[in-house]
């Protein structure tokens, strides 16, 4: 019991860092996923090439390597040292954003062509097509994979402990070093990650339900989606 009362504040503090990086990374990843994903559906060949180069590069490089590069190598080029939390958000956001972009592109492509044709018959502008018909319908399809990517990003955030950010993993490692209670130290960290993940998943399920309701679909039976295929490479 001493272990819990002594260490809990540390873990909570660490969890806040993990939460901060996860939320920040997700925000960046979301913006990238949407813009690069939409770019990948345009008719312009240049736009599609830019999107696919982005996806291949940032999906290809491991987030840990990207983060190390930003933290250790980039200052040598730019002379500007990134704050480690910021470097982590950037690396994770860029990496998970690439997976998200593929998700967005796939979901847009999955909207039936007939819907697109109906917008032409009603003379929508291209922007209006996207905003009021294509994206609202693609949204429901994107959400399950987005949920998985959030979990991948949260797990990936553990690597920041390697550049000395005191996140949940770092705290676990520190507590192990100080107390010598190896089992308890890591188990506590794992359980907190698990709980965080369940909270994220809960909110995503709510979002999915409301998205499906807005399309006039009955709330789907708790059908579990396969976790993000090639799930964000665990962001490492």
């Amino acid at each position: 019991m001493d272990f819990i009362t002594d260490s809990l504040p540390l873990y909570i503090n660490g969890a806040l860092y993990t939460l901060l990086i996860t939320v920040g990374g997700c925000a960046l990843a979301f913006v990238i996923a949407m813009s690069v994903g939409i770019l990948g559906t345009l008719r312009s060949r240049v736009a599609r090439a830019v999107a696919s180069i982005y996806v291949e590069v940032f999906r290809g490089v491991a987030a840990l390597v990207l983060m190390f590069w930003m933290f250790y190598a980039m200052p040598l080029v730019t002379g500007y040292l990134l704050d480690p939390v910021f470097a982590a958000i950037l690396a994770l956001g860029l990496n998970v954003g690439a997976y998200g972009a593929e998700n967005v592109r796939g979901a847009i492509k999955a909207v039936p062509a007939a819907q697109y044709e109906a917008t032409i018959a009603l003379n929508f502008t291209p922007a209006q097509r996207l905003r009021s018909v294509i994206l609202p319908q693609a949204w429901a399809q994107m959400l399950p994979t987005f949920g998985n990517l959030i979990i991948e990003l949260m797990k990936g955030s553990a690597v920041v402990s390697l550049i000395a950010v005191s996140d949940l993993t770092f705290v676990g490692d520190q507590v192990r070093a100080f107390t010598g209670q190896t089992l308890a130290a890591y188990t506590a960290a794992l359980v907190m990650y698990f709980l965080l993940a369940q909270v994220f998943l809960y909110f995503m399920r709510m979002a999915e339900r409301s998205a499906n309701r807005r399309l006039g679909r009955e709330p789907l039976k708790a059908k579990k989606s396969t976790p993000a295929v090639a799930g964000a490479g665990g962001a490492a």
């Binding site: 553990a158 993993t169 890591y186 960290a189 990650y193």
Partner: peptide, 17 residues
């Protein structure tokens, strides 16, 4: 549980615990 927790911590667990 394994899927919702970081590989890095799992590695530490295996290596140190």
């Amino acid at each position: 549980f394994i899927r919702c927790t970081p590989l890095l911590v799992q590695l530490f667990f295996l290596f140190y615990v």
